[in-house]
Amino acid sequence: MTAVDNLWYMADEADQQAERTYHQLSGRYTTYLEYERSQIVSRSRFRTLAERIRENGLPYGAHTLVYQPSGELLLVRHEGVDKWVVPGGEVHSDESLMEGARRELREEAGIEVEYDGLAILARVSFHGDGHNTWGVLPVFEGRAETTDLEVCDPDDEISEARWFEDLPEDTRDRDELREWRRRRFSSS
């Protein structure tokens, strides 16, 4: 079997796992913001992402959108992408998606939350070297139980954690986070 066929097969398996994960989440939660993104990536990056997606449907892991009743949102500074992002990352094979999101939150910001459900369910498509696949980006929502922040990231990707009333211009998925906050706090 050629490398091209192997990559095609890997992408097909990734698609199937992404579909299972998407249906699991969309069947369990009823209210969430949904959006789609598409990225063109190199062949090697495509292979890495397809391998991740084959594991659990997630190219970038699970994340937590943490809020305070005042409407402030927690963001962490991810040096690898040079942006403010919601805390999150890889889900280990012995964890549920929410358990992985909770562990990543503790590592990246040092706080605990009371989870409310799913804030965002995104579909991210990847295109590279004639191949296509997609994965799911689940972002759980939770009210902060503690607010003192401490970064203890073992991967050294996160340099800072901070509460924001106004989201910085260099916030990844800024428009979607603002829309989630508008919906969340206009119905309260």
Rank of each mutant, 00 (worst) to 15 (best):
N132M: 08
R123Y: 06
E51A: 13
E108G: 06
Y32R: 04
T146W: 02
M10C: 13
E160R: 11
R28S: 06
R28N: 05
A62R: 00
G57D: 00
E36H: 11
I120V: 14
I120W: 00
Y60L: 13
D173L: 11
S186P: 05
G142N: 03
G88P: 03
I158W: 00
D170F: 13
D15H: 11
R20Y: 10
W163N: 07
A109C: 11
R178W: 10
T21E: 03
E176A: 15
S159V: 03
P69W: 06
R45S: 07
R103S: 10
L7R: 10
K83D: 10
F185S: 12
P154H: 07
Y32C: 07
N132S: 12
D148R: 12
E107I: 04
L105N: 02
D94K: 05
R52M: 10
R143G: 03
D5S: 07
G80Y: 03
Q39M: 08
H131K: 05
E99D: 08
E95D: 14
V41G: 01
R178L: 15
I120Q: 03
H63C: 04
N132V: 07
S187I: 13
H92T: 08
S96N: 06
P69R: 10
R102Y: 08
R178V: 15
T147I: 13
D5W: 02
L65Y: 01
I40Q: 12
V113Q: 00
E104Y: 03
D116L: 11
F46V: 01
S38P: 00
R162M: 15
W163L: 12
Q68G: 05
G89R: 01
A50Q: 03
R103I: 09
W180S: 05
H78E: 11
H127C: 03
H78K: 07
L105K: 04
E34W: 09
G27L: 03
E179K: 12
S96F: 06
S70V: 09
F46H: 02
W84L: 11
H78N: 15
L7F: 05
T133G: 05
M1H: 10
R103T: 11
L118T: 00
G57I: 00
S188N: 13
E150T: 12
D94G: 02
F140V: 01
L118K: 00
L75A: 07
R184Y: 14
G142R: 00
R103H: 13
W180E: 04
Y9I: 12
L137M: 09
L49C: 07
D94T: 06
A161D: 03
G135L: 06
F126P: 00
D5T: 04
V85H: 01
D166H: 14
L149C: 09
S125T: 06
D153C: 07
S96V: 04
Y35Q: 04
L7M: 14
S38Y: 02
D173S: 15
V4L: 09
S44M: 10
A109K: 01
E150R: 14
V41D: 02
I120M: 14
E13D: 14
R28Y: 04
E165M: 15
E179G: 04
A18N: 09
V4N: 08
G57Y: 01
E108A: 09
G110Q: 05
Q39G: 02
D153E: 08
A101C: 08
R143M: 11
R102S: 11
Q16A: 15
